[in-house]
């Protein structure tokens, strides 16, 4: 690993780039929600309030850190960085500039599935470690919800891989050049992926684990200051990560028409394609999230097991037959 790779992983298009993208995503989320509700949204922090998530983050880091008396101190204090690491590592496998990601192997998707599972596992551990009443109820719901959406999400991720005949994300992106987007090949898989990622992100209509009106702030109830800042940042980073994953797997990611022969200019154009697609997916998720109300946990489990799992199996069958 040479110096350039380290810079790529840590600064651009790696960690720092995605963290700033996460802040922008949270701002867009709040602005879109506000606009859809007829409000204005954050206005004072920076131009049009774009620095609002940054202000929230730095305010939280400057506050007093409270560790509950009966909590598991080790997990409670050291868990949030690991929770943050899950989507942060996942983003390295997604091509942002050019058609190749920083790190690319023939088994990318298996690792991505591990990252998604690890993220939920860390949420569960953090919730149990804080030993609060609301956290415990919330984790029960989280595990049940995870057991419901895991299979459809997995099958939805597998179908574009089958269509491309490749498990590497860079390979899947390269298979989609010339507008052979997999959203036209596996439309049902795309829909299932979006619905399942809403459940993975704990956003409405699947915000059952942190239902504000029922169980306080869910498994985040006992967190304050720095751990909370990490947890909130991880939530927005997961947002970006899942949008980028959807854009790469189904909308072609960075793939698009080649306009120039100059490498640097073409890299910029690839980045523009990627950002347009990511923000398109992001806006779709914001709109769904704002428009829908929360379902009960049994309704969610019902939906995932009796509707989305058969649909994604059907999609997988169709893709295998068409290949």
């Amino acid at each position: 690993m040479d110096a350039l790779e380290v810079v790529e992983i840590l600064v651009f298009p790696g960690l720092t780039f995605f963290v700033w993208l996460a802040f922008v995503f949270e701002w867009l989320d709040r602005k879109t929600t506000a606009r859809m509700q007829g409000r204005i949204g954050p206005m004072l922090a920076g131009p049009r309030g774009i620095l609002q998530p940054v202000a929230d983050f730095f305010k939280l880091t400057s506050k007093e850190e409270i560790v509950p008396q009966f909590s598991d101190k080790l997990v409670f204090e050291w868990g949030p960085p690991f929770f943050f690491a899950a989507p942060a590592i996942g983003t390295i496998f997604i091509p942002v500039v050019g058609l190749n990601a920083i790190v690319s192997s023939p088994y990318d998707l298996l690792f991505i599935l591990f990252v998604l599972a690890f993220s939920t596992l860390m949420a569960g551990m953090l919730g149990y470690a804080s030993a609060g009443r609301f956290s415990t109820i919330s984790i029960g719901r989280l595990v049940l919800q995870y057991a419901s959406f895991e299979i459809p999400l997995l099958l939805a991720i597998v179908s574009p891989a089958v269509a491309a005949g490749n498990l590497s994300i860079s390979g899947i992106v390269q298979a989609q050049s010339n507008f052979h987007w997999f959203v036209f090949v596996v439309p049902i898989g795309f829909a299932v992926f979006i619905v399942s990622s809403l459940a993975e992100l704990e956003k409405p209509p699947f915000d059952i684990p942190d239902a504000k009106t029922e169980i306080a702030a869910g498994w985040m109830t006992e967190f304050s200051a720095r751990p909370l800042a990490y947890v909130k940042l991880t939530e927005s980073l997961s947002y970006v990560f899942l949008s980028a994953l959807a854009a790469s797997l189904f909308l072609g990611g960075t793939a698009g028409p080649v306009l120039t022969n100059v490498t640097i200019l073409q890299d910029g154009i690839y980045l523009a394609y990627f950002l347009i697609k990511v923000f398109a997916i992001g806006f779709a998720i914001f709109a769904i999230k704002t428009a829908l109300a929360r379902v009960r946990i049994n309704q969610a489990a019902n939906l995932f097991w009796t509707v989305l799992t058969p649909l994604s199996l059907l999609q997988l069958g169709i893709v295998i037959l068409l290949r």
């Binding site: 506000a34 949204g41 309030g49 609002q52 506050k63 409270i66 306080a216 702030a217 985040m220 304050s224």
Partner: peptide, 17 residues
Amino acid sequence: DAERLGVEVVASPRHAD
């Protein structure tokens, strides 16, 4: 719209200012 000013209603006193 108090959110213009950066106000957010949180669900837990541990998050609150």
